[in-house]
């Protein structure tokens, strides 16, 4: 396993675009949190984003994992191109000739996905912990370490999404087309949702029930939007006499669905590779 990870890391570390994308990926959350912690002097009133309660434990786990997970697109480009470049450079062929088995090849990519997801998860954990310790109103250990399932959800979400990217990279063989396909697939899922909502199920709950089985929706389901949990929005909502009933909790079946998709994508990539002549 370490050998395969070494091989993959060697391939990535010298690629300029990979380096830049990865650095951007990690820099953006850092700079945003820096900005958020600065005092803005806004029309004479001190506005500090950090004071709006977004960095309170344990809410911060939810908030940060949700926001930062949008940036996964940067790493998605890295993953898709690390697959499809092997086709365009024809290095996949040479790798196999040099004695890498097809299974090892896919595994080396998958291990890299696990490693990148893990790195990102650790990063989010540390960043949130530091921000929280600075700005949270509650810093008791029992509160700090509650709701940590969002960190787990974040990791699974990345692994699932990146596995999808890997599969597309193998399927389409060209990075630009694979990314395009990803976007098209996103739209397809939305269209299916609309059809389900208006034509077949008729209810939002019913449509959601079916949609949770689609890959992108399944990964999105792991961490739901956190904004309606914010204090001032809750207050605003109660003033408007509306009620939010959103289930934020992480369910075992959501995790199971994503893990099943991950397995399908990894297995599918390998099956595609085995079937093809290079």
């Amino acid at each position: 396993m370490l050998r395969l990870l070494h091989i993959e890391f060697h391939k990535l570390r010298y690629s300029k675009s990979t380096k830049i994308l990865t650095i951007i990926y990690f820099l953006i959350p850092l700079s945003i949190s820096l900005i958020a912690s600065i005092d803005f002097n806004f029309i004479g009133i001190n506005v500090r984003v950090a004071d709006q309660g977004i960095f309170n434990f344990p809410y911060i786990w939810h908030f940060n994992t949700f926001l930062i997970s949008f940036l996964k697109l940067f790493l998605a480009i890295v993953i898709v191109s690390m697959m499809s470049n092997e086709y365009t450079n024809r290095t996949l062929k040479q790798n196999l000739i040099d004695g890498l088995s097809k299974k090892e090849f896919i595994l080396s990519k998958f291990y890299m996905i696990l490693a990148l997801s893990l790195a990102s998860t650790v990063f989010v954990f540390i960043l949130s912990l530091i921000l929280g310790l600075f700005f949270s109103d509650f810093t008791e250990a029992s509160i700090i370490f509650s709701d940590l399932e969002f960190i787990l959800a974040y990791f699974i979400k990345l692994v699932g999404f990146f596995s999808f990217c890997m599969f597309l990279g193998v399927l389409v063989k060209r990075s630009a087309f694979a990314l395009g396909f990803l976007f098209v697939w996103y739209i397809i899922e939305k269209i299916i949702y609309l059809i389900l909502l208006f034509k077949i199920m008729g209810t939002e709950a019913g449509a959601d029930k079916v949609m949770q089985f689609f890959p992108l929706e399944a990964t999105a389901n792991l961490i739901k939007q956190p904004f309606s949990r914010l204090n001032f929005i809750q207050t605003a909502a109660s003033q408007l006499q509306t009620d939010f009933v959103i289930d934020y909790a992480l369910h075992w079946y959501s995790i199971a669905i994503v893990i099943v998709w991950t397995a399908i994508f990894v297995w599918g990539s390998q099956a595609l590779l085995k079937k093809r002549d290079l």
């Binding site: 050998r3 070494h6 091989i7 060697h10 391939k11 010298y14 690629s15 300029k16 450079n89 024809r90 290095t91 062929k93 040479q94 790798n95 000739i97 040099d98 004695g99 890498l100």
Partner: peptide, 28 residues
């Protein structure tokens, strides 16, 4: 086995030495 098929296929962004290092890793 040492083999080359048709085109020489390497990673264009790596130097000659880095490419060979990678091959060593693959061949163990």
């Amino acid at each position: 086995v040492g083999a080359i098929i048709e085109h020489p296929n390497f990673y264009p962004y790596m130097t000659a030495k880095q490419n060979l290092n990678l091959v060593c890793k693959i061949k163990n």
